[in-house]
Simulated scan of single mutants.
Amino acid sequence: MSWAAHEFENYFIQKHIGTKASFIGVVLGTQLPDMFTKAFVYTADDPAAFHRGWPGVGFSHSLLFGVVFAVAILAITRSRGWALGVLIGHWAHVLTDVADTAGVMIFFPFSTEPITISMWKHAAVEGRYGDAAAYYSSLGGVWDLFWLLVTVIFAWRALTPSYFREIVIPADPYVWGWLHRTFRLPERGLLLLYQGLMFYGLGRMIAWFLYARFDAQAPFDPSWGGPEYVQGNDISDAGWVEVLVRTSIGGALFVGFMWLCWKVFVKRLWERGYDVPAAVRGTGIHAVLELPSSARRRAEKSPDGDVKQM
């Protein structure tokens, strides 16, 4: 599992999706796999198998789990931006977690074979604090640092006030507008909320790294598959040929199932969904945040997307 990378990668994703998806949807998606399960992992008899396997809650780290939530959001809200954001965020989390030794059942339920590159050990068996110490004593901590650097170097513009004003809010004006009106938050307050996840991840990374070094005094072992002092947590003993065969079959079945769902009902849901009209997006933050609800409704119904003057 990753401890801070999931926070950093949100901004890297945002830099590439622009106004096509909701940033808040992306954040929800990246938190979704562990949102309802992480609290129970450390008390399980076999934490790794419970967290990533089957039987257990490993299905939350499958591609299909993200699809189900995204389709449900599309059906309920009709917002393509939210559905797409949740799907992208969830899949990013799943693919990131391929790196630890437990892996993820990417194509569940068509294959229960976990996929892993085993960069560092899944150390939930050590308890929450032991897990943190092991993670930040292995390549896991390096992985967090890597994503921090990638975000700062390649996606730093996504953290600027101008990007937030011109891209993030216009992509999801209803939710940001609701936060503005309900909690009386000015633009600066909304910006702090937006940037806060980055600083939360940074603070979390620094705090746990210091804990691992000076309190737990865990030996630093940035070797592939480390740290060695933690017992192995592989949840599959299949050879690479067997893994390849099972994964290939599962992947083919997954793709076929997705195609069938698209043809049967998802395409209709997508076509009846909506993108945020350009008129609602506006060109300035105040035009977006202060837009009355009646004008928003007319903008959604208007064929040309123009908002009439009140």
Rank of each mutant, 00 (worst) to 15 (best):
M1S: 05
M1L: 12
A4K: 03
A4V: 08
E9R: 14
E9A: 09
E9L: 13
I13Q: 05
Q14M: 15
S22V: 11
G25Q: 04
G25L: 07
V27R: 01
K38P: 05
K38A: 11
A44G: 10
D45V: 14
P47L: 10
P47D: 11
P55W: 08
P55S: 13
V57R: 00
F59P: 00
F59T: 03
S60P: 03
H61N: 05
S62W: 01
S62Y: 03
L64W: 03
A72C: 14
L74N: 08
T77V: 11
G81I: 07
G81S: 10
A83L: 14
G85K: 02
L87Q: 06
L87G: 02
G89Y: 03
G89C: 05
W91Q: 01
V94S: 02
T96R: 08
A99P: 01
S111Y: 11
P114A: 01
I115A: 00
T116P: 10
S118N: 13
H122M: 08
V125N: 13
V125I: 15
E126V: 07
G127T: 11
Y129N: 06
G130V: 07
D131I: 06
A133Q: 04
Y135R: 06
Y136S: 05
S138L: 04
L139G: 01
G141K: 03
W143I: 02
D144V: 04
L145H: 02
L145V: 09
L149H: 02
L149C: 09
V152S: 12
I153V: 14
I153M: 12
L159R: 07
L159I: 10
S162T: 15
S162M: 14
Y163K: 11
E166D: 13
E166I: 13
A171C: 10
V175N: 06
W176P: 07
H180Y: 15
T182I: 12
L185M: 15
R188P: 13
G189E: 11
G189C: 11
F199L: 14
Y200R: 12
R204M: 08
A207K: 10
F209C: 03
Y211E: 04
Y211Q: 05
A212T: 08
F214E: 02
Q217F: 00
Q217M: 09
D221F: 07
Q231G: 15
E242I: 11
V243E: 02
V243R: 14
V245G: 09
T247W: 02
G250A: 02
L253G: 03
G256L: 11
F257A: 07
M258R: 07
C261F: 06
V264K: 09
F265H: 07
R268M: 11
R268L: 13
W270R: 06
R272E: 15
G273D: 09
V276C: 04
P277V: 11
A278G: 07
G284D: 14
H286C: 09
A287K: 10
S293R: 12
S294N: 10
R296T: 06
R296H: 04
A299R: 00
A299Q: 04
S302Q: 09
Q309G: 10
M310S: 14
